[in-house]
């Protein structure tokens, strides 16, 4: 893609605005139960439908994000690497660890750390989409998984960039710690999506107009009861995997980094 230099500054601003908006939309799509928590929304007959509409919101955000891929220069090597890594992550998703947890984060985190935040965002989007296709899991939940995973890829890319100057061992340690934390963040985000699906008036269920504090308490109890153990096992698995494999995998990925941004020098003999 060619872009005239004069428009570069405006388009950078535009990209910033766009990503800011995507972030706001994503917060709305995930966090709407807390919006309905205010007393102002009391008695709203829409609280039952909100999750359907939030699915649409998530889909629009994921769509715009995917449209964004076209803007930067994307070369075939990036597409191919995204493809094979997405396949690997998709396979990892099928493999369930002894504790019931899942080890799909570690490769995303390492790839994002090796190739940067933008690559992390793209890999997050495509890996979730690919794994949904592989496991027959395409549905209204997919945009949310994609957004949450892209968020994780972005954060991992930033952690990777921030620790790039440190020694590999320290960097791997940071990434492992990040992976441990983010396994819970990811679990909490995905639960936030499925939580309001069932509004049965239970003590851990979502109900409109409970007030922020009560909503948070219900959600917290729900999360601890349903997913904490699962997420903890996933977090531990990712921590261990990154600690054990982080160094060699980062090295393996970085050896191909030059191919993702081919630089050509033309000289005369």
């Amino acid at each position: 893609m060619t872009r005239t230099p004069s428009s570069a500054a405006t388009s950078r601003l535009q990209v910033a605005i766009l990503y800011g908006l995507i972030a706001i939309i994503a917060i709305l799509a995930f966090g709407w139960p807390f919006l309905f928590a205010s007393q102002a929304a009391a008695g709203s007959e829409h609280s039952g439908d909100a999750w359907l509409w939030s699915a649409l919101l998530g889909a629009v955000a994921a769509c715009v994000m995917t449209l964004e891929i076209r803007r930067g220069t994307i070369v075939s090597a990036q597409i191919a690497v995204l493809g094979v890594l997405s396949a690997c992550i998709g396979i990892l998703r099928i493999v369930t660890l002894p504790g019931g947890g899942n080890s799909l984060y570690f490769l995303l985190i390492l790839a994002a750390a090796a190739f940067g935040p933008r690559f992390g965002v793209l890999l997050g989007l495509t890996a979730m989409a690919a794994s949904a296709v592989i496991t027959a899991g395409v549905g209204p939940w997919l945009p949310f998984q994609m957004l949450a995973f892209a968020f994780m890829g972005w954060c991992a890319g930033i952690v990777g960039a921030a620790t790039a100057r440190l020694s590999t061992r320290v960097q791997v340690g940071c990434l492992a710690a990040f992976g441990w934390c983010f396994a819970f963040v990811f679990g909490a985000l995905m639960n936030l999506w499925s939580w309001p699906l069932i509004q049965d008036g239970g003590a851990t269920s979502y109900a409109p107009a409970l007030g922020i504090a009560a909503t948070a308490r219900h959600y917290w109890a729900y999360y601890v009861a349903t997913s904490f153990a699962w997420d903890a096992s996933g977090a531990l698995a990712n921590f261990v995997l990154i600690m054990l494999l982080g160094g060699p995998i980062l090295a393996a990925l970085r050896r191909h980094a030059a191919r993702l941004r081919p630089a050509v020098i033309w000289t005369q003999p």
Partner: peptide, 21 residues
């Protein structure tokens, strides 16, 4: 070589009267 691989290229390759440069 060199567009996809990157690298330092000198000389010229012409195929069907078109230069890869």
């Amino acid at each position: 070589v060199p567009h996809t691989t990157g690298g330092e290229f000198s000389g010229e390759v012409t195929v069907a009267d078109r230069s890869t440069r």
